[in-house]
């Protein structure tokens, strides 16, 4: 058996084996062990078996991730998210229990900076997790995010909400995008927000 033969043989075996990502295997095993709530050999082996079965039987399409994780950016992203979460929760809680007129909201559009669907989704998820803004619609193609913001009455306040969402997106990009500076370039940003699509705001009032 020559070396070339052996190599071909190995590649053949590799082709026969389903493409299982080791990270997926590890993650699913960890989840399995946590679900059982105790770490022992049986759980570990069972978890590996189940993870392998899941990954082989339900293969996911390959996603090409062009991400670069920056620990510092990630830390800023998560820390700021927690602060925003607490602050916005207290605000919305106050709005709902304060005496006087009830709060109303507006529906508004805004233009995201990135084309990457994953980063857009991440931004939208974080925006909708923070109380005070609910994502209504996200069009990945035109990068238009439609959201409903609470307690916005003037154009200035609407602009503030847009600014907040853009800052959120900037934090996501700085944490995960390979080249955030190119996307967040202010010139491109201005062109994008003025030229690519209309940004409008509609308010609604209580009847």
């Amino acid at each position: 058996m020559t070396g070339a033969d052996r190599q071909r043989g190995r590649r053949g075996v590799r082709r026969l084996l389903p493409p299982v990502s080791p990270w997926g295997l590890l993650w699913l095993t960890v989840v399995w062990v946590l679900l059982w709530g105790s770490l022992n050999v049986l759980n570990l082996l069972g978890g590996l078996l189940v993870a392998l079965l899941v990954l082989v039987l339900f293969p996911l399409p390959r996603v090409d991730l062009h991400l670069r994780v920056r620990p510092l950016g990630l830390l800023v992203l998560l820390g700021r998210f927690l602060v925003d979460l607490v602050r916005a929760s207290v605000e919305v809680a106050w709005l709902s229990v304060r005496p006087g007129p009830v709060a109303t909201g507006v529906v508004m559009d805004l233009q995201l900076a990135t084309d990457d669907p994953l980063l857009q989704t991440l931004t939208a998820e974080m925006v909708s997790l923070v109380p005070g803004s609910v994502v209504v619609e996200l069009d990945p193609g035109s990068r238009v995010l439609t959201l409903h913001a609470l307690n916005v009455r003037t154009r200035h306040q609407a602009e503030q909400v847009r600014h907040k969402v853009r800052a959120q997106e900037a934090r996501v990009l700085r944490a995960l995008h390979p080249d955030p500076a190119s996307v967040l370039d202010p010139r491109r940003h201005r062109n994008g927000s003025r030229g690519a699509g209309p940004e409008t705001t509609t308010t609604q009032e209580a009847p």
Binding site: S96, T104, P131, V134, A206
Partner: peptide
Amino acid sequence: LRFPDLLTRMHAGTK
């Protein structure tokens, strides 16, 4: 209970 419409009520439900 107090918010006037669906989307504002969703804000209340998020927290």
